[in-house]
């Protein structure tokens, strides 16, 4: 069987603990945030997704319904489900410079002797700390 002919291809992590339908929703949201998917793009058909992932068709339908409820996609009967909104907007332009900054930061962290685990822990703990000094 060939790959899915849409713009994106789904994958499933069976050990993530995240339900399959939610993984599909998250992957569409992520593709929107990264600008991989744009308004007007057709999402893979239910048949294409289940033929690729060997999952229940209802799982895909549920994911697409949720995307519709969130105003991100809309189904055209007999044609497919299409992306109707984008999440990336203007912020996408900032991705390049931010990625550069992050690379520099990671290099500095490694130079300081942090291993992968410490870097991840530091990032997550900082990311989750409520920002209080934003009003300066």
């Amino acid at each position: 069987m060939n790959g899915v002919e849409g713009v994106i291809e789904f994958h499933l992590d069976s050990r993530s603990g995240v339900s399959p339908y939610l993984q599909l929703v998250q992957q569409v949201r992520q593709a929107l945030l990264l600008g991989v998917l744009e308004a007007g793009d057709r999402l893979p058909t239910v048949k294409e997704v289940v033929a690729q992932l060997a999952i229940n068709p209802n799982t895909v339908l549920k994911a697409y319904r949720e995307l519709e409820r969130d105003g991100l996609a809309s189904a055209k009967p007999g044609v497919g489900t299409f992306v109707t909104a984008t999440l990336a907007d203007e912020s996408l332009a900032a991705h390049g410079p931010l990625r550069e900054g992050l690379r520099a930061w990671l290099a500095a962290a490694r130079k300081a002797g942090l291993d992968e685990e410490s870097i991840e822990a530091l990032f997550l703990s900082t990311f989750r700390t409520p920002v209080t000094e934003e009003n300066e």
Partner: peptide, 29 residues
């Protein structure tokens, strides 16, 4: 994959026995 594709296309019901619970978790509702 073939079974799920056929279900999506022809919309029939399935009853399937298996010992492979991980497979069933993907496929069964």
């Amino acid at each position: 994959q073939a079974l799920m594709e056929a279900v999506a296309e022809h919309a029939f019901s399935v009853v399937m026995s298996s010992h492979l619970l991980a497979d069933l978790e993907r496929v069964c509702d």
